[in-house]
Computed example of a mutant assay.
Amino acid sequence: MIYTVTLNPSIDYVVNMNQLTEGAVNRVNTEHFYAGGKGINVSQILNQHEIDNIALGFISGFTGDFIQSSLHEKGIKTDFIQLKEGYSRINMKVKTLSDETEINGSGPKISNEEIEKLYQKLDGLTSEDTLVLAGSIPASLPDDFYEQIMKYVAPKQVKVIVDATKNLLLNVLKYQPFLIKPNHHEIAEMFNVTISSTEDLLHYGNQLKEMGAQNVLISMGGDGAILISETGEIYRSNVPKGTVKNSVGAGDSMVAGFIAGYQKDASYEEALRLGAASGSATAFSSDVATRGYIDELVSQINVTKL
């Protein structure tokens, strides 16, 4: 079974308007509500690929009820921990003709008792399971929470996939995650360098492998993606034709597509192909991608071995 963890889920309230004027009443043209969070996005794309999975994490209040019910409506299994206090956050995304502004909530406080409930759920994992840790860690949890989780499940030999930034990612490498997915900007930040070529990316991607990551998947926006596999093989994918409508969730969709491709064929080449198609399909959509659109783009993905 695949388990995704979203520590701080949200309702993404997305509005479109011609112009945002500060200090005035603004009226929207369109508005949409989505269940948000990186792990939740992974679950939604896995569901599109008909890959069984369970979404874990913390929810609370009426906003948490919306998150859970909207996932159930899509046929996604959840095993969230219901917090006693607070409300799951609302993230507002304002899109105008010329700009995009985000206002993100902070989310509820999570108690030690509720943290323990998450560990109890992790007790049932085995070496046959995959655990996806994605996104930021809320302020009420310790900064090394991902490290703590990986240390906890390490004796079970669970495959762990981590999609996080900076130190959150660097500090878990000693536990040898099965897959990490930094983008090219994040690699530059992690190593405090300027990335100016594919050779630079490969150099620092290999450093991440030497630090413990088994597989390194690097997304490069409009330049495609690179996979440095655990066997040392290097693959690169292109990007299909399309217009970017929504960058939110594209990276999560790439992770989910990679998992789906690897589950089906145990082929890193095919995993990258399906990952690239899934990420692009979400980037070209107003919400996370549908299976039909992903399948449409797969034929445009060329994977070459470097």
Rank of each mutant, 00 (worst) to 15 (best):
M1D: 07
Y3D: 12
V5S: 10
N8S: 15
S10W: 03
D12V: 03
Y13I: 13
Y13C: 06
N16F: 05
M17H: 05
Q19V: 02
T21A: 07
E22D: 02
T30G: 10
E31Y: 07
G37W: 04
I40E: 00
V42P: 02
S43L: 03
Q44D: 00
I45D: 06
L46I: 12
N47R: 15
D52C: 14
N53A: 03
N53K: 01
S60I: 11
G61Q: 09
F66W: 11
I67M: 09
S70Y: 08
E73W: 00
K74F: 03
K77A: 13
K77P: 03
T78L: 10
F80P: 12
I81F: 12
Q82H: 10
K95F: 01
S98Y: 08
N104S: 00
G105W: 02
G105T: 07
P108K: 05
E114T: 05
L118C: 13
D123Q: 13
E128M: 06
T130W: 11
L131W: 00
L133V: 10
I137K: 11
P142T: 11
F145I: 09
P155L: 14
K156G: 00
Q157T: 14
V160F: 00
D163N: 06
A164P: 06
T165D: 13
T165I: 07
L169D: 03
V172D: 14
V172E: 10
V172Q: 13
P177Y: 02
P182H: 03
N183H: 06
H184N: 11
I187M: 07
A188E: 15
F191I: 10
N192W: 14
S196P: 04
T198K: 03
N206C: 05
M211I: 07
N215V: 05
N215A: 01
V216T: 06
T231P: 12
T231M: 11
G232K: 00
Y235K: 04
S237A: 09
V239H: 02
T243M: 06
V244N: 14
Q263P: 06
K264I: 00
E269G: 04
A277F: 15
A277V: 10
S278M: 00
S285F: 11
D287I: 04
Y293A: 02
L297C: 15
V303N: 01
T304D: 06
T304F: 03
L306M: 00
